[in-house]
């Protein structure tokens, strides 16, 4: 292979990692946000995203004998455009996220084992619901961005697909907005205050419970967006988020489970690593990259237990 051929292949693989990286980054940010604010590792984050993708599918499909939500399929009306379906799913997902925090997590948040158990209960409940309501078959949602063979740019001999770039930019834009919300608004200030000192926040009049509920709602919304966008790439199945969750957790670990910014970078980093390992190492196929991600995770924890966070910050959590 010539140098330019090798370079364009490298570029192609880098482009290919962007869509997955966006999904990993979104899940990692959602996990970090929840863990940072409540100390609860939300293991149902991936299932929530999967569930909301099915909701988007129901909206986007319209009345269908396979995707009915109740016996009266006319409740939802005609099929919605994919963007609207994803937005609808995000709203529903945010409501579920807020409900989860208020009803399921808050009463038991003082006990981390009970809280993790409750998130696992939600994990199983959502999986069972989807399997029993819509079956276990693979379905197709489609992408909100153009997806034909001509919808691409040729850059340096590599193809950058419009939907890949669309997914990446959307995710970067949304997570950037989230960062602005956290840094520039009163709500964000309250969120940061609660995550850094909950007792102090109560004393200065911040309604901590509402802020936490908002955090869970936002995390669920981000997960729903990730699920809706990535569904066009990986199709919709009840187990579609298992793999993504592991990469998301690994990426969140890079940020010590406390830094959404580092978790975001970690998401793209892990996707890059996954694609490159699968592409350049002959004995690693696409399935086994997950194992390598796990190995990398173990090595990171061995070498740098605090992730990319400064050591003191991560060790304070003990």
């Amino acid at each position: 292979m010539t140098d330019s051929g090798g370079m364009s292949l490298f570029l192609q693989r880098t482009f290919d990692s962007l869509a997955n990286g966006s999904a990993y980054a979104a899940l990692a940010v959602a996990i970090s946000m929840v863990f940072r604010s409540t100390g609860v590792l939300n293991l149902a984050q991936g299932q929530l995203a999967m569930f909301s993708t099915y909701i988007a599918l129901v909206f986007a499909t319209g009345p269908s004998p396979y995707l009915k939500f109740s016996s009266n399929t006319d409740v939802l009306g005609a099929a919605w455009p994919i963007w609207a379906a994803i937005l609808g799913a995000i709203v529903i997902s945010m409501v579920i996220g807020a409900f989860t925090e208020r009803v399921i997590i808050r009463p038991i948040s003082a006990d981390p084992v009970a809280a993790v158990g409750a998130t696992l209960g939600l994990y199983l409940l959502l999986g069972a619901f989807v399997r029993k309501q819509w079956g276990g078959r693979t379905m197709f949602l489609g992408s909100p961005f153009p997806q034909t063979v001509d919808d691409r740019w040729d850059i340096g001999g590599a193809r950058l697909w419009h939907d890949t770039l669309g997914i990446t930019l959307t995710m970067i834009g949304v997570l950037g907005l989230l960062a602005v919300l956290q840094r520039r608004t009163k709500v964000g200030l309250a969120f940061r205050a609660v995550t850094s000192n909950r007792t102090g926040s109560v004393m200065v009049g911040i309604r901590v419970s509402r802020v936490l509920m908002l955090g869970w709602a936002l995390a669920a919304g981000i997960g729903a967006l990730a699920g809706g966008l990535i569904a066009g790439e990986i199709n919709v199945r009840p187990d579609m988020m298992g793999r993504l969750l592991i990469f998301g957790l690994a990426a969140a670990t890079l940020g010590g489970l406390r830094s959404p910014a580092l978790a975001f970078i970690g998401g793209y980093l892990f996707a890059f690593l996954e694609t490159m390992l699968g592409g350049y190492v002959s004995f690693i196929d696409s399935q086994v990259t997950l194992v390598w991600a796990l190995l990398v995770l173990i090595i990171i924890l061995f070498v740098r237990p605090s992730g990319l966070l400064p050591r003191g910050e991560a060790w304070q959590q003990r």
Partner: peptide, 10 residues
């Protein structure tokens, strides 16, 4: 199992 987990948690 979900009901069992949630009941145990609560």
């Amino acid at each position: 199992y979900a009901a069992l987990l949630l009941a145990t948690a609560y």
